[in-house]
C-alpha cells in the first residue's frame, strides 16, 4: 500500500456489487462513511461505530466485515458486496430477502442489512447449516425489534430454498 498522508485526500478504487467505483477519502475515513456519504449507498447502516452491533456488516472479498471498523483506504482493490446488491433486479428480492419478508424477520429494518450480509456470506460457504450455526451467525448482530426468532426461521427457510435452487438453477429467477 502506498504511504498515505493524514493531511491529504486519496482516491480509493474498489468494486461494489460488481461495479467499479472510486471515491475520494481521507486516510481516516471509515468504509461506512465512504459508502454512505461518498457513494450514496445508504443501505449500509451505522449503529454503534465500535464493532458490536453489526448493522454495518458488508462482505469484503467474500468475508463478512464490520465496515465501521474498516478504513476506506484499506478496501483499495477489494470486492465489496452490500445489501444493495442482494436483489435479483429492481423491485425483485433475492431468496434471503424474500424469506425475511415472509417471516416478518424485520421491523424497523435498521439492523437488517448487516444481518442479511452476514447470512448471505455464510450461506455461500455453508449451504446446509443447522439452526444452532445460524443462531451463532445471527448472534453476531444486535436487533432490538424482532426478538430474533423470525430471523432464525427466515435464515433456515432461505437456506433450504437456496439448496433447492442449486439443484434447479432455472427456478432461481422466481425466488
Amino acid at each position: 500500500m502506498p504511504k498515505l498522508s493524514a493531511a491529504s485526500r486519496h482516491s480509493v478504487s474498489f468494486t461494489v456489487n460488481g461495479v467499479a467505483r472510486s471515491v475520494e477519502v481521507e486516510s481516516r475515513t471509515l468504509l461506512t462513511d465512504a459508502l454512505r456519504h461518498g457513494l450514496g449507498m445508504t443501505g449500509t447502516h451505522v449503529g454503534c461505530e465500535h464493532g458490536v452491533c453489526g448493522s454495518c456488516t458488508v462482505a469484503i472479498d467474500g468475508t463478512m466485515a464490520r465496515a465501521c471498523l474498516t478504513l476506506a483506504v484499506a478496501a483499495e482493490g477489494c470486492d465489496i458486496r452490500t445489501v444493495e446488491g442482494l436483489g435479483l433486479g429492481p423491485g425483485r428480492l433475492g431468496v434471503l430477502q424474500a424469506a425475511f419478508k415472509r417471516h416478518h424477520a424485520l421491523q424497523c429494518g435498521f439492523c437488517t442489512a448487516g444481518i442479511l450480509m452476514s447470512l448471505d456470506t455464510y450461506l455461500r460457504r455453508h449451504p446446509d447449516p443447522s439452526r444452532e450455526e445460524l443462531t451463532l451467525v445471527i448472534g453476531g448482530h444486535l436487533c432490538r425489534c424482532t426478538g430474533y426468532a423470525p430471523i432464525v426461521a427466515a435464515a433456515l427457510d432461505a437456506a433450504a430454498e437456496l439448496r433447492g435452487a442449486q439443484k434447479h438453477p432455472e427456478e432461481t429467477a422466481h425466488a
Binding site: 454512505r36 442482494l86 424485520l106 437488517t112
Partner: peptide, 21 residues
Amino acid sequence: PSVERVEDATLLSGGGRYIDD
C-alpha cells in the same frame, strides 16, 4: 392471516430513508 408488509421490500434492499440517509 398475516399479510406481508408493504414496508419490507424497500427496507430489505437498502432503500430505507432514515434520517441520516
